[in-house]
């Protein structure tokens, strides 16, 4: 049966898998907790808090190496935080059964990431007026290519609203919604993949705080759940980040696919049986 130690160990394993597959720990942990009979809203509230730890822990090195763009992140956080607060508020009042289906549906958006990584990055030729005014641009040193890569962010306003949707889903489901954020950043905002995934990771911590602020006094935050989840998932994510480069992309793809399909089936099953 699940106790603080087993949940801690489970969270390490999940944090590890979450960081390898790019799914993030919470989107795997929330359905697993539900499987163990934890009320779905409690699982979501604790997931939201655990994300602050995993995201902030792993973002610190991306920020230091200046791959994540702090200015772009600040701009986009205006949108994600409003979305997250709205999403979390919805979850506190909505019928739990709906959350199973929302969760399963949102996991489907993770598949978009699979196609994305196949195509190369083409920088935007020109910037719209708002992006230019906000100086949404930057450069980073790409180790694999051995050179400084400059980029200009485009479509600041539609991109912002896309991020608001990501924040809404994150706040509602207690997850980072990283795959969705990255999709918006690459396809709408035209950010290079590495800048996009690291900036998304940085933003997730703030978005999660917006969601957590709503859950804080909702009576859903269980300390005996939250503590092992936060500690375990962060340790797992740190280990995952270190071995990521040693695993083949093919193995990662297969793992990703199996996990997502399993989680979707489980949440739908739970939803259907709860009706």
């Amino acid at each position: 049966m699940l106790n603080i130690v087993t949940l801690g160990i489970l969270s390490i394993a999940v944090g590890f898998l979450g960081s390898l597959t790019g799914l993030g720990g919470a989107s795997i942990l929330v359905p697993i907790l539900v499987l163990f009979g934890i009320p779905v809203k409690e699982a979501i509230a604790c997931g939201m808090v655990a994300i602050i730890a995993t995201s902030s822990g792993s973002a610190s090195s991306f920020v230091r190496e200046r791959i994540a763009n702090v200015r772009v992140a600040m701009y986009l956080e205006m949108f994600t935080i409003v979305g997250a607060i709205a999403g979390a508020t919805i979850t506190t009042v909505v019928a739990p059964v709906l959350l199973y289906f929302f969760f399963a549906a949102f996991l489907l958006t993770s598949f978009v990431g699979l196609r994305r990584s196949m195509s190369g990055f083409v920088p935007a030729e020109r910037q719209d007026r708002l992006s230019r005014w906000l100086k949404l641009e930057g450069s980073y040193y790409d180790v694999a290519e051995g050179k400084e890569i400059g980029y200009r962010v485009n479509n600041a306003l539609p991109g912002g609203f896309g991020m608001m949707l990501a924040g809404l889903a994150a706040g509602m489901l207690g997850i980072g919604a990283g795959a969705f954020k990255v999709t918006v950043q690459e396809n709408v905002l035209r950010m290079p993949p590495k800048v996009s995934s690291t900036t998304s990771n940085f933003i997730i911590g703030m978005t999660a705080l917006g969601g957590a602020s709503v859950y804080f006094f909702s009576g859903l935050l269980n300390l005996t759940l939250m503590a092992p989840m936060a500690v375990g998932a962060t340790i797992g994510a740190i280990i995952g980040g270190r071995v990521l480069n040693r695993l083949s992309t093919r193995v990662l793809r297969i793992m990703f696919f199996v996990i997502i399909v399993y989680l979707i089936v489980q949440m739908v099953y739970k939803g259907v049986t709860a009706i």
């Binding site: 106790n3 603080i4 009576g219 859903l220 935050l221 269980n222 759940l225």
Partner: peptide, 14 residues
Amino acid sequence: NLNITQDAAVFIRG
């Protein structure tokens, strides 16, 4: 023990 409990004391309130 290290049980995950639903006891009211482990929930944040305020």
